[in-house]
Amino acid sequence: MITMMSVFKILMPMLYLVVWGTYIWLFYTDHPTARRLCTRFAMITVIMHTICTASRGIILDRLPMGAPAEFFCALALAMLATYLVIEIRIKAKNTGFLVTGLSFLFVFVGSAFSTTSPEVSPFLNDPGFAAHAVLVLFAYTAMSLSFLFAMLYLILNRQLMRHQFGLLFRRSPSLEVLERMSVGAVKMGVPLLFASLCLGHLWMYDLADRMDSEMAVMLSPWDPKILISWVILLGYSVGLLGNRFLGWRGKRMNIMAVVAFFTVVSAMGLVYHFFPSFHNFKSNQPISALSGFPETAAQMLALNEEAGR
């Protein structure tokens, strides 16, 4: 098992590096061979990484997203896979060097700091939670890509406004395509976020049924993190509806995408800072001495099992 994981640890960054290299080659030269190869290499990498992640999951008997290093690897996979879907749908390859570069960075960090069996939450063994976590990851990755494409739109828009006809002008897709990519990413992210929130609620109620009433009260749908996620979902949905029915287009739409992303990041940061509750999955956190309540869901589950005995 250790040998296999070690091989993956070396293989994955190499594959991502090759993909990134091909996309850079495409961006700088627009060479037909690069154009032909880049998507294929990205597909192969996604397939290989999925197999690798699944194997790791089977070997560890849990979702391999518990440790930060594992999370970075999963983020790289989500980013590349989401980008690939958008690229194939929109048929625009020249923005790939940015996304694949970030994916490479994440997988490199993830592989460099990975351990064979980090201490993680027992929740990661639960299929319901695993599905919820994967959906959340893909949803927020899609939102991040929307931000990235919107930024590219605004940069190209600025260059055109200033009559600068450099490399970005020659290689980047049209403003219209960049906008479609940004909106397309949101179109992917919104249903994924909705599904993940619904699944999260179902899983939470299922978990509450398995705990005593005092503990179950901790699992509230009014948790600030859940509420803020619903607000984010609502915000992006309004944006999509405006784009579809009210003709929100162009620079305004892309500024909104950038602002929305910064709002999401800031709101999430604030909520996680001020309301550290059951969305924390580290298994070795101390129980709060002041409140007497467990700080993490893992601790909550462990206490519940103890109480049952």
Binding site: P173, S174, L175, V177
Partner: peptide, 25 residues
């Protein structure tokens, strides 16, 4: 096919189209 020697507008009229295509797909 193997190089980009024929890519990019080299006439005013075609450059106009190329520029328009930076806005519209």
């Amino acid at each position: 096919t193997e190089t980009r020697i024929s890519v990019g507008a080299v006439s005013v009229a075609f450059a106009a189209v190329e520029l328009a295509r930076k806005f519209f797909d």
